[in-house]
Design a protein around this nucleic acid. Structure first.
Lengths: 391, 391
DNA sequence: TAAGTTTGTTTAATGAATTTACAAACTATT
DNA sequence: AATAGTTTGTAAATTCATTAAACAAACTTA
């Protein structure tokens, strides 16, 4: 059912707008917020005072006058609460405690060699418990947990299918909420990564971006008009399984010639092992390329070409302003970027390309974990200031 | 700038909700609307009376009692105004006059053999003028014009690039508004087609669908949560230029192995002409296939296969509930569908496919023209009942 | 015929924003 | 210094759409 309008809705909308400006443009005065938003000074004043009341905003003293009374500057109080962000990887768990601005306060990384789901979940709980116990005192305490997972989830936070973990139908959100009794958000690691890059990384200035997560497979998180696009049922972005060769080799998904068979880290290593022995790792390849090994450099350049093929497909179908490539391959940027850009220049449609930018992640392996924490913070604010999404 | 909330916004939201229910669930009583929406009877009554005042709603007499006073039934007044919808094709113009419910009142189809842009625009104007002159008297008159074009447009209604018309940078919206002095909406024919199918065709029950327009090229219109998705800058959906063979033949777009080189009507005819002579047409192919010509049927089956390859890519990247195939190839459905479905069954990911449906258009060649008219109607209601989109 | 139900309107109350006014604090000018 | 003008933030009165409560009219059922 559609959400109807009433006075409550009006207040929530305006309060969230005011808070948004304090979060992004602070330090800022009441008068300036009124000017920017079009709300009257009286309205802004009233809403700001409620936000101060609820500890989300602080007055930090007077600012510079522009020819009249000095303004009282407002600051978002990032330490009114803390969030947990988790990147549940195939071989390790990266977890962070952030404040409400997304600043990392503590961080834990633990390995697991992919034992049973139960053992990984227990490890996950212990890791989170540890971060919670070490969190500073605050008004709202731990406001929520966000978890990025390497697979497909539904709206209830059940991990439906994670091929590389070999998990199926794990109700992760339920488990976590039963354990910690705070709101939990579960989403795909590429979606979380896209949000991480949008909020804290290379995509801060961009409303439309695609984050391509390159690892064992290839996934993508798509941000449209500043918001994550999830597709019809919440599991879109399986872009690694776009076929770039309709009669190519068979993929485990059933299709033929999927992009991730050519352009993933896994594909690179497979090929390198065929040519140079089975014990080779990405770190070794990077070292050899750095030392000038032409055969290895050629291998990276070939990968750059195939990355480009898929990126052209992304550009032509999603038309983003920014494509951000994430994952450990960022370390090979210097060999990948040239063939990739050459291919884009040659092959993408002129109109979509005009505004386009391609870059590797700025956050290295933190995009997902920061995005996951950001999910928790967003959910917190949605419940306190605006809650339009009820359906 | 974000839209702030005030009483005006509340009223617009609620009025549009009430009108929406009268448009879709009529005949319906005030009491029933209050029940469905959660608004009070008093609020609904007040809003309905304003809608009656503005001629958009009529009382059509009392309905059946369910044990008390008989309800006064309300009906949307579809003839309070009329809209023009146009499908500007490469070889012809199809234009319709519809009422506010989308019902076609008059229709005109004229051929043009792609002369200069100016001549086509003059023909377009004459065609529209003719429909306007023949429109019935109504309260609001002609409320707007929607035009679907075979190319890429910007937000100002300029046709940036239409390869098959050989047009570039034609400010069509400006021309039309200067001529007719009513609101004009310009959009890609595939986008219009998607909206047409969503409103009036196979996609009525579906919130997430992709309409694939197969003609000289292949385009797509994407509907997410009931709304058209336009990508970052308004020219997304160039899905025909997704490469399905990274080292395939060169496309006019610059890339290699684009889907439309394999699966468009144009590609089919090219191949047929190579094999069976240069004078062959789609109609001839259909007739021969109908007569049992195995070579021709094989040609269609091959096309079905390649349609499937692209549809799998669409499913994996957009994850829609429904893929609707439009264009003249609908006539070959019986030979295309089997290889297409076989391919889907084999190649698409299990989760996205679960809810998926694939079908040919129900509206034959009217999807675009009806969608275009619907654009005009939507714009009209946006300006009279809700106008949130100002930025 | 009486009792209960449903519809739709009327009236009063609520509350969030706006408008207007204003005091406080500051800068610039004479 | 004194004065004028500007800017900030609050206060009081007004506006207006919704809600809640009451009610009259119209209808069904026992």
């Amino acid at each position: 059912m559609k959400q109807t309008g009433d006075l409550n809705l009006v207040k929530k909308i305006n309060k969230s707008i005011v808070l948004h400006h304090i979060r992004t443009d602070s330090p800022i005065s009441r008068a300036r917020i009124a000017e920017i938003t079009g709300l009257t000074k009286a309205t802004v004043s009233s809403l700001v005072n409620e936000l101060i009341e609820s500890s989300l905003v602080d007055e930090i003293g007077v600012g510079e006058s522009s020819g009249g009374r000095k303004p009282m500057m407002l600051l978002f109080n990032g330490t009114a609460g803390y969030a947990i962000g988790v990147d549940l990887g195939v071989h390790d768990i990266l977890a962070v405690l952030t404040d409400l601005t997304g600043k990392v306060v503590r961080e834990k990384r633990v390995n697991h060699d992919n034992p049973s789901a139960q053992e990984v979940i227990d490890l996950l709980k212990a890791t989170i418990r540890d971060l919670i116990n070490g969190a500073p005192e605050s008004v709202y305490g731990i406001i929520g947990i966000g978890i990025g997972v390497p697979g497909i989830c539904d709206e209830d936070g059940t991990l439906l299918f994670a091929p590389n973990l070999e998990w199926e139908n794990v109700p992760l959100q339920k488990y976590m909420e039963e354990t910690f009794h705070i709101p939990v958000v579960i989403d795909n690691e590429a979606n979380a990564g896209a949000v991480g890059e949008k909020q804290f990384g290379a995509g801060r200035e961009t409303a439309n971006l695609v984050y391509v997560s390159i690892g064992i497979g290839i996934g993508a998180g798509i941000i449209i008009k500043g918001e994550l696009y999830r597709g019809a049922t919440g599991f879109s972005g399986e872009i690694g399984h776009i076929s770039i060769q309709h009669d190519g080799p068979k993929c485990r998904c059933g299709s033929l010639g999927c992009w991730e068979l050519y352009a993933s880290e896994h594909a690179l290593l497979e090929r390198a092992r065929q040519e140079f022995g089975s014990s080779i790792t990405l770190e070794m390849l990077l070292r050899k390329a750095e030392a000038g090994d032409a055969a290895i450099i050629a291998l990276f350049e070939r990968l750059g070409y195939f990355l480009g093929v898929g990126v052209v497909n992304i550009i032509n179908s999603y038309n983003p302003e920014f494509v951000i490539l994430g994952g450990r391959l960022a370390g090979a940027e210097k060999w990948l970027m040239k063939p990739l850009l050459q291919l884009l220049e040659k092959r993408s449609l002129p109109h979509p390309r005009k505004l386009l930018n391609v870059a590797f992640s700025e956050l290295s392996d933190r995009s997902t974990v920061l995005g996951a924490a950001s999910f928790a913070v967003t959910k917190f604010f949605a419940s306190t200031t605006v809650s339009v999404e009820h359906n």
